[in-house]
Simulated assay, not measured.
Amino acid sequence: MIVRTLEDCRNSDRKVDGETWNSVRMSLKDDNMGYSFHITTIYANTETPIHYKNHLETVYCISGEGSILDLATGVEHPIKPGTVYMLNNNDNHILKAQLELQLACVFNPPLNGKEIHGADGAYPLEAEAVTDL
């Protein structure tokens, strides 16, 4: 059994900061669960281009307000508490936050821990692992 708190993970190298977001990686590849689980904050009044070419992701909105723009279709979907979206086709998108978004995210395959978005908006398939917790 593995037990961690959000606060413990937030105060460790499991918290990764990007320009428009931070992600607290609570479960990672080395936990051998077959997925990774994160609590991600998208900062208010930002737009983040994302294109996970190597990962599938399911996202549940805990709090905040924003939208996700599907770049393949041009359709923009609102995001508010209770919304879930699934990037089941490695969907190229722009995540927009009008108010700070707090999101619960699941990645398959699981992340190692140190991933940040590359210039193409993707995480690498393999990255450096975290070392604590």
Rank of each mutant, 00 (worst) to 15 (best):
F37M: 07
G121E: 09
L69C: 07
H117M: 15
N89V: 09
L111F: 06
T48W: 00
E128V: 05
T5V: 14
A104H: 00
I116N: 06
P49T: 10
Y123V: 09
P109S: 03
I62E: 09
M26I: 14
I94P: 05
L6K: 08
L6Y: 15
G74N: 02
E19D: 12
T5H: 02
M26D: 04
E126I: 15
I50W: 09
D91I: 14
K53S: 02
G18P: 07
N92E: 14
K114P: 10
I68F: 01
E65C: 01
N32V: 12
E126K: 07
R14I: 07
G113W: 06
D31L: 04
P124Y: 13
S23M: 09
P109H: 01
E126H: 15
C61L: 04
A44T: 13
K15G: 00
D132E: 15
G118M: 13
K15L: 11
E19Q: 09
E126P: 03
G121W: 10
E128F: 07
V3F: 06
A97N: 06
V130D: 04
T20G: 05
G113T: 04
D31Y: 09
I79F: 05
L99H: 07
V24F: 12
I2V: 14
E128D: 11
L95C: 11
M26G: 05
N32E: 03
Q98K: 11
E76A: 04
M26R: 01
L28G: 03
I50M: 14
H93F: 02
T5G: 06
D13V: 02
L71I: 11
L133D: 01
E76N: 07
N54M: 09
K96M: 15
V24W: 03
R4S: 02
W21L: 14
L69N: 12
Y52R: 03
P81W: 06
M33A: 12
D31I: 11
N90G: 08
G113S: 08
S36Q: 03
H55P: 05
K53C: 05
T73D: 08
P110V: 10
T83D: 10
H51G: 09
R10D: 13
D31W: 07
K29R: 13
P109I: 12
K96W: 00
E65D: 06
K80G: 14
Q98G: 02
N88L: 13
S67T: 02
V75F: 13
K53I: 08
N45M: 14
D70C: 13
K80F: 15
N11H: 15
N112K: 05
S27R: 02
E19H: 05
N90Y: 15
E126C: 01
T131H: 12
Y43K: 10
A97L: 11
S12P: 03
G18D: 09
T5C: 08
D13I: 06
N54H: 15
R25M: 00
C105E: 12
R14W: 03
Y35Q: 04
Y35P: 03
L133Y: 08
S36F: 01
A122R: 03
L111Q: 03
Y35W: 05
A72G: 08
D70K: 09
T58N: 03
S63H: 11
V84M: 15
I94W: 00
I42F: 04
C9R: 11
I42L: 13
V75I: 13
Q98I: 12
L28R: 01
T46E: 06
E57Y: 00
D120N: 10
